[in-house]
């Protein structure tokens, strides 16, 4: 099981890296799906099968597919892919990589600074029903809020997609 974790971790890292650095949006999204699947495996190994399933069904299956639809809707073609490549030349990555490396170093220092205290109980696989009880027990207000958030997202999305050109929203360098 431990070995499976490290394999999944390696896959997740590699796939995520490619997802972030790939010039083609569709390829990038497919790499991200791979990364999510690897994460789902890790969740399973950590004893959370229900969440692992959700990761696959909702994240990979719904959210990323939504991305794919949009990308296809926008007809991002070969020319734009070339432009995309010019945007992600290695020089561009220097600053962000350094910033991220510093952040990673800081986080690693925090994580490895002292070993975590011993757990109260041995890790146990939790059943979906436990999660459900937790959600509708102590977290019921948070569930309500999450519902509101989803509603707000729904309204926002349906408002933003309206094809209203009367609102000027022009960036620099656009044709007038």
């Amino acid at each position: 099981m431990t070995l499976a974790f490290y394999i999944a971790a390696a896959v997740a890292l590699a796939a995520t890296f490619r997802a972030v650095t790939h010039a083609d949006a569709v390829h990038s999204l497919l790499y991200f799906i791979v990364s999510l699947l690897a994460a789902a495996v890790i969740f399973y190994i950590l004893g959370a099968p229900f969440v692992a399933a959700l990761e696959i069904i909702i994240y990979a299956g719904a959210i990323i597919v939504l991305f794919l639809f949009v990308v296809m809707l926008l007809h991002i073609g070969r020319g734009q892919r070339r432009e995309e490549r010019s945007w992600i030349r290695p020089r561009v990555w220097v600053g962000p990589a350094m910033l991220s490396a510093v952040l990673l170093a800081a986080t690693v220092t925090v994580i490895t600074a002292e070993p975590p205290p011993a757990p109260h109980a041995l890790p146990q696989a939790t059943a979906p029903s436990d999660v459900g009880v937790s959600l509708f027990g102590p977290y019921v207000v948070a569930v309500q809020l999450a519902a509101l958030l989803l509603l707000a997202g729904l309204v926002g999305a349906s408002h933003l997609r309206r094809h209203d050109k009367s609102i000027p929203l022009r960036a620099k360098g656009d044709p007038p």
Binding site: G95, P96, L103, A106, T107
Partner: peptide
């Protein structure tokens, strides 16, 4: 985004 990240690093650095 970069300034947010820099801020996070700063706070972590101070904490460390």
């Amino acid at each position: 985004s970069a300034t947010i990240a820099a801020g996070v690093i700063l706070i972590l650095a101070i904490a460390l």
